[in-house]
C-alpha cells in the first residue's frame, strides 16, 4: 500500500475524532471493514502495544503503521498522529477567546460522547475475536475494573494479564 494513501487514511481517522483512541472506530471502518487491510486481531495487538509503553494514547497508530508497512509505516503513523496537534496554534491565536461559547462547547461534548459510543461499538467485534474462553473474559473484566476504578497504570494491568496467561499456559497446557 502506498505510504501517502496510508498517511491520508491515518490522518482522516485522527483529524475527525477527539482523543487518541477515539480514532479507533474510524480506522477500523477503513482498514478492517472497508479495505480488509488489517484484521481485528492486528488492530487489538496494535492497541495493546501502544498501551504497554509510555506516551500519548494515540501512539497505537505507530503500531498499526508498523504492522501494515514496517518501519516506514510506523513513521507514517507517527506523522499522522502528530499532524493534527498543530491545528491548535491558530486556535490559540484566533478563537481562544471564544472557546467558552455554549454552542461550541455543546458540539464538542456531544461529539466526544458519541466517540465513546463509537469506541464501544468498534470493540464489539474485536472482543468477539479476543474473548474466546472464560479465562479471557475474566481477564478482560478484571482489566476493565482495575483501569476504570483504580489509579494503577495500564502497563501493570497488561503485565498482570501476561502473568495470568503464563500461569494458565503452564498449569493447563
Amino acid at each position: 500500500m502506498k505510504l501517502v494513501l496510508l498517511y491520508l487514511l491515518f490522518l482522516k481517522a485522527m483529524a475527525t475524532t477527539f482523543g487518541g483512541t477515539a480514532s479507533l472506530a474510524v480506522l477500523r471502518e477503513d482498514l478492517v471493514v472497508r479495505h480488509g487491510l488489517l484484521t481485528d486481531r492486528d488492530l487489538n495487538l496494535a492497541v495493546t502495544a501502544g498501551r504497554s509503553g509510555p506516551g500519548p494514547n494515540g501512539i497505537y497508530l505507530v503500531s498499526v503503521g508498523y504492522l501494515m508497512a514496517g518501519v516506514p509505516g510506523a513513521c507514517i503513523g507517527w506523522l499522522a498522529m502528530i499532524t493534527p496537534a498543530f491545528v491548535v496554534i491558530p486556535l490559540v491565536r484566533i478563537v481562544g477567546a471564544r472557546a467558552d461559547r455554549p454552542r461550541l462547547l455543546g458540539a464538542i461534548r456531544a461529539s466526544t460522547a458519541a466517540s465513546a459510543g463509537l469506541l464501544m461499538a468498534a470493540m464489539v467485534p474485536i472482543a468477539r475475536g479476543a474473548l474466546t474462553d472464560g479465562l479471557l473474559v475474566g481477564v478482560a473484566a478484571a482489566s476493565f475494573a482495575v483501569f476504570s476504578f483504580t489509579r494503577i497504570d495500564s502497563v501493570w494491568v497488561i503485565a498482570a494479564a501476561a502473568v495470568t496467561g503464563l500461569v494458565s499456559a503452564v498449569v493447563v497446557h
Binding site: R41, T48, R51, I126, A130, A140, A141, I158, T164, G165
Partner: peptide
Amino acid sequence: AVLASAVGM
C-alpha cells in the same frame, strides 16, 4: 491474555 486485557481497558 494480553489482548483480552486490552479489550477490557
